[in-house]
C-alpha cells in the first residue's frame, strides 16, 4: 500500500512515517503542503493520504477539494489540531474519509488507519 504524508512540519512527517514503518508500510511519500502533494500524486498514486489542515501555500482543505475535483479516489485522513465540529463537517463534505486530532498516540494513528481501510473495504 502506498501512503502519502502531507504536513508542513518535517517533525510531524517523521513521527507519522516512523509509525507507518512499524506497521509494515514501506511505500511512503512525503509532501510539505498541498501544492507539493498535488505535484506528486500523479506519479506516486497513493492508496491513502494523511493530510494536515493548516499549511502555507495550499492548505489541507484546498488540496482535498482540488484532489477530489481531479477525480482521485485515495482514502484521505485529516491529521490536524482543528477539532471544531464545523471544520470537521466542512472537510467531510469535501470528500474526507476520516479525521484524527493532534496530539495522537502511535496506537491512535494505527487504529484510525485500520478503521478507515475497514470502512472502505465494507463499502
Amino acid at each position: 500500500m502506498r501512503i502519502m504524508i502531507v504536513d508542513d512540519s518535517k517533525t510531524m512527517r517523521s513521527i507519522q512515517k516512523n509509525v507507518l514503518k512499524r506497521l509494515g508500510y514501506a511505500e511512503i511519500a512525503e509532501a510539505c503542503d498541498g501544492r507539493d502533494a498535488l505535484s506528486q500524486v500523479g506519479a506516486f498514486d497513493p492508496h491513502l493520504i494523511l493530510l494536515d489542515r493548516n499549511m502555507p501555500e495550499m492548505d489541507g482543505l484546498a488540496f482535498l477539494k482540488s484532489y477530489r475535483g481531479r477525480g482521485h479516489k485515495a482514502l484521505v485522513i485529516m491529521v490536524t489540531t482543528e477539532a471544531e465540529k464545523p471544520k470537521v463537517i466542512e472537510a467531510l463534505k469535501a470528500g474526507l474519509n476520516n479525521y484524527l486530532i493532534k496530539p495522537f498516540t502511535p496506537e491512535g494513528l494505527s487504529m484510525r488507519i485500520k478503521e478507515t481501510l475497514e470502512r472502505s473495504a465494507a463499502a
Partner: peptide, 8 residues
C-alpha cells in the same frame, strides 16, 4: 499542537 488543542 498545544495552541490548537487549547483553542478547542
Amino acid at each position: 499542537i498545544i495552541a490548537g488543542n487549547a483553542k478547542s
